[in-house]
């Protein structure tokens, strides 16, 4: 395997849109049946775009196959971060779910598969 970025638009994205994966990184955590997705802009300049487009409603729509409860969003400007808590997302919770990924560890990349409109051409993120 090479270290080449794997951001290849999987589906034909609408013109002028890119994957959230190019702008942001994400970590998934779990508490009971709630998936907690922490989203961080790579560049501070992109953070307002994320605040505008990656709303609780947009995330709920994007993750409709996964999240069956309420999505709440917290905005953390000092960290250029958006925190989503997604209820009823883990098939009854890590201890009783019959899913393969009981913790929802892989759900960070479900969020990063979201299309975002109005992005400048891709530049590689800085190293830190």
């Amino acid at each position: 395997m090479t270290g080449r970025p794997s951001t290849v638009a999987p589906a034909p994205l609408p013109p002028g849109t890119r994957l959230l994966h190019e702008l942001a990184h994400c970590r998934a955590g779990d508490k009971g049946d709630t998936s907690i997705l922490s989203l961080f802009a790579y560049r501070a300049d992109d953070f307002p775009l994320l605040v505008q487009q990656v709303t609780a409603e947009a995330v709920a729509a994007h993750l409709e196959h996964i999240v069956h409860g309420e999505v709440r969003r917290h905005v953390l400007p000092k960290l250029c971060a958006l925190q989503f808590s997604c209820e009823h997302a883990l098939g009854s919770g890590v201890t009783t779910s019959i899913a393969l990924d009981t913790h929802g560890k892989a759900l960070s990349f479900a969020l990063l598969a979201m299309p975002i409109a109005g992005i400048a051409p891709l530049q590689p993120p800085e190293s830190r």
Binding site: G29, S38, H74, Q83
Partner: peptide
């Protein structure tokens, strides 16, 4: 940053 917010349902 990723670990700071890890599993924090309400960061406030």
């Amino acid at each position: 940053k990723e670990q700071l917010l890890y599993e924090v349902a309400d960061p406030t």
